[in-house]
Design a protein around this nucleic acid. Structure first.
Lengths: 226, 226, 226, 226
DNA sequence: AATGAATGAGCATTCATTCAT
DNA sequence: TATGAATGAATGCTCATTCAT
């Protein structure tokens, strides 16, 4: 058992070293340029050895995505801890995401990657990392709801997903189109993101005039429940 | 002249046939699996022949993206024409996007692809197709603004970008996570999307309580204007 | 007959236009970049039409080589006309070649190309263009021989070939290694070429001490006559 | 250690086998016809495997060129060792080159290839192989100079370049035009080459009448020194 | 546990030439 | 005489994964 433990420590270290190397490569050359050969070379082990620690390239990316999501959760916690105002906390989640995108670009790329690609199975730790984030966000939303600073019809868990989708999409567009943003609108990434955040937050507030009954929208919503 | 016309018709047809084949391949195997060899084989022409009609693989994808965007614009127009209510029209844009995603999945993939990838140059018809969509959406928002059914501080063109980013992100998450959606929340894609639309629309309404001065959010916004 | 004549005039013009275009392409992009498509495009005729005037790409290069050799002969004549001294005339041939290389680089490339490649058949005009140059050079050497300013054992025609081979080789090395020439020896192309010319001319002079009988060299020469 | 040695032996052998195969292909079909697919097929390994031993096609050609240059140097040494006469040694260099061309035609092609092509970077072993040859030839010339059997104004290193350029050019013409040589002059390659060697050697001898002052040639030489 | 040689299908692109019109 | 669409073999190179040692 002792031996096993020592072994698994060594194993853990190599596992980490492989992820570190892969992260470096992505940071330097981008996710697309990641290859098993490069990883093996960087860690100074044989290509075959990498497969002793990770079943496939996908698993390495998965491993890094776990890291990335942990870091994102840390960002969320850190930003939310700055205020006690439940609504502010929600805003802080968005801003945490923004700064995560700006400061941890590699991680953001990884998190987005998993959002963009169908057919990537998430299980085990990877699924958990996603769950932890959801849980945290849900908690923040639930708290705001309990304290009645946001609409009462909101389903916290679902709303978390919506937030997530919107933020991912916005940051994607910020990433892709920041040139146009600057050129045509004279807006910085932050200003643009501000518009988005303001929009979303404003949509949560309870003093909203609800769409009139019988509107097309209502009909569509009804329909969608079928 | 007749001959010339006939010829250019034949050419036009092959051009179309190539795009059709490429579209089929993407529909069946995904955008990543698209290759020139497959296209040639599907059209039953030589590989070199494909290059008589398209300068590169990128041009084929570009050609399909033009198709996709045209179709998306058609969706927008069709859905918006269903109502005269300016706010409803905005909602309809979101729903048009949703049904575009559901019904024209390949096209949606193509449109998203161009959103997700930096460094893809857009020119000529491709750039125009993007512009036409922006123009249309901007017009709808501008109209709602003029009619005072949405906040007056909205910048229509910028808001169009925000809409676009959010919708892309949400549909991405719908695409990737619809299993979880069903499993954990018992929600259909449509219901989930509904929550999103309601959220966004609600955020546009003028009778909004603005975030209190001095809130963290305000500070960040101020900051971002520097 | 008149019609035929007119036709062949028109034909001649197109023939010329094709060569002109090919020459431009080689001048701009190099011999390797020459392609039938580019030629056709440049002349604004169909690809197939080019084949009505030239049987193959090789024939176009052959046609240009004829031009190039004509120009080279003109250089030879021009440079030789500058002096009446028969030895000087020989020197002038070398210098004509040097300036041909410097000033008509495309033509030089073509002339060299035919020297470097085995299996390129030369017939008709192409063979003649080579013959004319040989004849001219042979005449110059023969004249110097008759006037006893060079060794009497020289076979003019053969010597012409030797000159040609040496000059081609030297210019090739000048072309390839001019950087080293400048860097390691501080010599310009001209200075280097000067050393070569001086060497060669000096080898032609009659007051030479011939290699001693019985030397290895003599043996090899004897051997070679077998 | 044994194992490692055996392994690296096996690797060395495959490396050699690839070069051998490439050499065969060049010998049979010419340098231009060399392709990675052909090499792989000839060695009966997968295309990708070739890339485990050579980074690129250019590296294979480079590897063969090293072989070729080594062999050429061996020829030089062997031929020069046949005599102690310093002038004879110079002649032997030319004859070594001739027999290298005749007997190791593929290698000659490779050596010429590197002379003819601009923009081929030479480094490491490849650069060294070139340097060793230069050094050897320079030594032979320097020795002859020191012993006063050739002109004292000769710069050994530069002269080596001139020799090399001339020999490359002559052998090229021998290669290309040997049919004409036989047909029109009734001369064998060897006889022709003899004329060349005699010419060159004769040009090195010190008892030379220098070109008269004021001749065109002198002017050009002066000019070139500016 | 570790190796690293081997695989081989796959990629986008080129181009001299042909031939039906 | 002129067209230009079509061909299709060929190019150098990549890379996730396997497996005998």
């Amino acid at each position: 058992m002792k031996i096993k433990h020592r072994k698994s420590l060594a194993k853990e270290m190599k596992h980490t070293a492989i992820l570190d190397a892969a992260e470096d490569i992505i940071a330097t050359e981008g996710l697309e340029a990641l290859s098993m050969s490069k990883v093996a070379k960087a860690v100074k082990i044989a290509k075959g050895t990498v497969y002793l620690y990770f079943e496939s390239k996908e698993e390495i990316i998965g491993g890094l995505t776990i890291r990335a999501r942990r870091e994102l959760l840390a960002y969320f916690k850190e930003y939310c801890s700055r205020t006690n105002d439940p609504l502010e906390k929600i805003k802080q989640i968005f801003w945490a995401d923004f700064y995560f995108y700006k400061e941890k670009h590699t991680y953001h790329e990884l998190v987005s990657f998993y959002e963009q690609n169908t057919g990537l199975e998430e299980k085990g730790e990877l699924a958990m990392s996603s769950y932890h984030i959801s849980q945290f966000v849900e908690g923040i939303i639930e708290d705001a709801k309990r304290k009645k600073v946001i609409r009462q019809d909101i389903i916290s868990s679902l709303q978390g997903f919506v937030f997530w989708g919107m933020a991912v999409g916005i940051l994607q567009i910020v990433n892709t189109k920041h040139d146009q943003l600057a050129k045509y609108f004279g807006k910085s990434e932050k200003e643009f993101y501000s518009v988005f955040v303001e929009n979303v937050i404003s949509g949560l507030l309870p003093e909203k005039i609800l769409p009139a009954q019988g509107s097309v929208y209502q009909r569509v919503v009804q329909e969608s429940k079928k």
